[in-house]
């Protein structure tokens, strides 16, 4: 039980370090970095490597943006397994809907509630 907190911290932290290196050394913008990580996540799932990482690290693997790519691929693959090639299209958002819907809903709520400020 306790060990998952430690592995979560370490794996999550390391994924962020990879992102930091891409930004500092590779001179990528944050947006480019995130896109690359998302693509990396979905490729890893193609090889079946991301799910074992989730088992090992818990939220350390599900909170970083790489899990978004993984979840998309995972949904598509699960549906493809059942329905063949058409499932690739229909299954994509099956697993990952919560992140996007939460971001859209809370984004809209925030635009109602908050005002942007230029404080440092």
């Amino acid at each position: 039980m306790l060990s998952i907190f430690i592995t979560s911290f370490i794996v999550g932290g390391l994924i962020c370090v990879i992102g930091q290196l891409m930004m500092d050394v590779g001179k990528l913008t944050p947006a480019h970095t995130l896109c690359t990580l998302v693509v990396a996540g979905s490729i890893l799932d193609g090889f079946g490597l991301y799910e074992p990482l989730i088992d090992f690290a818990g939220t350390g693997a599900t909170i970083p943006i790489t899990s978004f790519g993984n979840a998309l691929t995972h949904g598509a693959l699960a549906e493809a397994e059942k329905h063949g090639i058409i499932g690739v299209l229909t299954g994509m958002f099956e697993v990952t809907s919560s992140g996007i819907s939460a971001a859209i809903i809370f984004g809209f709520v925030a635009s109602l509630v908050f005002k942007s400020k230029g404080t440092i």
């Binding site: 990879i18 944050p30 995130l34």
Partner: peptide, 10 residues
């Protein structure tokens, strides 16, 4: 990147 990469950054 510590705050950009997690889903909170998204």
């Amino acid at each position: 990147a510590g705050s950009a990469v997690p889903i909170t950054g998204f």
